[in-house]
C-alpha cells in the first residue's frame, strides 16, 4: 500500500449527501477480478450519459477537476454496499482523500485499506472547503496527515481527528495483515480455548 503523508492537490466539490457505493461504482462494473482499472467507471451514471458521452455539467468532467486528488462531499458518503470497488475506483481515478461530515462504516474502513484518507469535518467546514474547491485549479488544498491538518488555499489550518492506529498504518503504508500476524500466538491460544469450550461449534467440510 502506498503511504499517505502529505497531499497538495485539486479538490473537487461534490455537494451531495448519501452518495452510495452503487453511485460511486455501479454493480455492472464489479465483474472484474482485479483491483485496477475501475477509474474509468467512477461515478459512471453521473459522469456519462446513456450513450457513454461525458455529461459536461458533472464536476469530474471539468478542468481542473479531471485531475482532482481530493473529493469534498456531504453527509453519509459511501453508504450501501460493502464493495471495495468503490475506493478502488476512486484511487484508480486519482483520488487519495475524501473530506465529508461523516462516512458510512464499511466504506470508511475500506478507504484506509487502500491508502485513501477519509477526513471527517463538520458540515460548515466542509461547505467552506467546498467553496474553496469551486475556485478551481489555483485553489489547491493541502492535507498533512502527520500534523492532522487540512490547509485551505488562504493558509488557514483546520485540525482533524483520526484513529491513531489507522494513522500509523497509513503514514507507513503498512499492510495490516502483516500487523495482525504478529499476534499469531494469541490467535493460536484463542482457537485452542474455543475448541475446548465451544466444542459444539461445527467445522465446515463439504462433500
Amino acid at each position: 500500500m502506498q503511504p499517505f503523508t502529505t497531499l497538495t492537490g485539486v479538490a473537487a466539490p461534490l455537494p451531495l449527501a448519501n452518495v452510495d457505493t452503487d453511485k460511486i461504482i455501479p454493480a455492472r462494473f464489479l465483474k472484474t477480478i482485479k483491483r485496477s482499472g475501475l477509474g474509468v467507471h467512477l461515478f459512471d451514471t453521473l459522469r456519462f450519459d446513456e450513450n457513454g458521452a461525458e455529461r459536461p455539467e458533472f464536476v469530474l468532467n471539468q478542468e481542473p477537476y479531471r485531475h482532482a486528488e481530493i473529493l469534498i462531499a456531504h453527509e453519509n458518503f459511501g453508504c450501501g454496499s460493502s464493495r471495495e470497488h468503490a475506493p478502488w475506483a476512486l484511487l484508480d481515478f486519482g483520488i487519495r482523500c475524501v473530506i465529508a461530515p461523516d462516512f458510512a462504516d464499511i466504506f470508511h474502513t475500506n478507504t484506509f485499506k487502500n491508502g485513501i484518507l477519509p477526513i471527517k469535518l463538520p458540515r460548515e467546514i466542509c461547505d467552506q472547503l467546498m467553496d474553496d474547491a469551486k475556485l478551481g485549479g489555483n485553489a489547491r488544498i493541502t492535507v498533512d496527515l502527520a500534523a492532522q491538518e487540512v490547509v485551505r488555499p488562504n493558509g488557514e489550518r483546520i485540525k482533524f481527528e483520526i484513529d491513531p492506529f489507522r494513522k500509523h498504518l497509513l503514514l507507513n503504508g503498512l499492510d495490516d495483515i502483516g500487523q495482525t500476524l504478529q499476534h499469531t500466538p494469541a490467535i493460536d491460544g484463542y482457537e485452542a480455548r474455543q475448541r475446548a469450550e465451544k466444542s459444539w461449534m461445527p467445522d465446515i467440510s463439504v462433500s
Partner: peptide, 17 residues
C-alpha cells in the same frame, strides 16, 4: 459486511482488527 481487504485479512488470520 466487510470489504475485500478485510476478506483477505480473515482468510489469512481468521480475525479482523
Amino acid at each position: 459486511g466487510i470489504g475485500t481487504s478485510e476478506v483477505e485479512h480473515v482468510m489469512a488470520t481468521q480475525t479482523l482488527l
